[in-house]
Simulated scan of single mutants.
Amino acid sequence: MLTIISYILSVINWLIWLYSIIMVIDAIMSWVPFLRDSAVGRILNRIIDPYLNIFRKGPVQRLSYATGLDLSFLLGLLVLYFVQDYALNWLANILFRVLGL
Rank of each mutant, 00 (worst) to 15 (best):
M1E: 11
M1G: 08
L2Q: 08
L2T: 04
T3R: 14
S6N: 10
S6P: 02
S6V: 03
Y7M: 11
Y7C: 04
I8F: 13
I8W: 10
I8G: 03
L9M: 09
S10E: 11
S10L: 12
V11T: 06
I12K: 02
I12V: 07
I12D: 01
N13Q: 09
W14S: 13
L15N: 06
L15V: 11
L15P: 04
W17H: 07
W17Q: 06
L18T: 10
Y19K: 03
Y19I: 01
S20G: 10
S20E: 07
I21T: 06
I21K: 15
I21W: 14
I22D: 04
I22E: 04
V24I: 14
I25N: 11
I25W: 14
D26W: 09
A27F: 03
A27W: 01
M29G: 05
M29H: 10
S30C: 12
V32I: 15
P33I: 00
F34Q: 12
L35H: 00
R36I: 02
R36M: 06
S38M: 08
A39S: 14
A39E: 14
A39N: 14
R42E: 13
L44A: 08
N45S: 14
N45C: 07
R46V: 07
I47T: 15
I47H: 14
I48P: 05
I48E: 07
D49K: 15
D49R: 14
D49S: 13
Y51C: 08
Y51Q: 05
Y51A: 08
L52W: 01
L52E: 02
L52M: 13
N53I: 03
N53D: 06
F55C: 01
R56E: 00
K57I: 05
G58S: 09
P59I: 11
P59E: 11
V60T: 01
V60H: 00
Q61V: 00
Q61N: 08
R62P: 03
L63G: 09
L63W: 15
S64I: 00
S64R: 00
S64F: 05
S64Y: 05
Y65H: 08
A66V: 02
A66R: 08
A66G: 10
T67G: 02
G68H: 02
L69R: 01
L69D: 05
L71M: 13
L71A: 04
S72H: 03
S72I: 00
S72C: 08
F73L: 06
L74W: 05
L75W: 00
L77P: 01
L77Q: 03
L78E: 07
V79P: 10
L80S: 10
Y81K: 05
Y81T: 09
F82D: 09
V83K: 00
D85C: 10
D85P: 03
Y86A: 09
Y86P: 06
A87P: 03
L88R: 06
N89C: 07
N89V: 07
W90E: 12
W90A: 15
A92C: 12
A92G: 12
N93L: 11
N93T: 09
N93V: 05
I94N: 15
I94W: 15
L95T: 01
R97V: 02
R97I: 01
R97N: 11
R97Q: 10
G100P: 02
L101P: 00
L101Q: 09
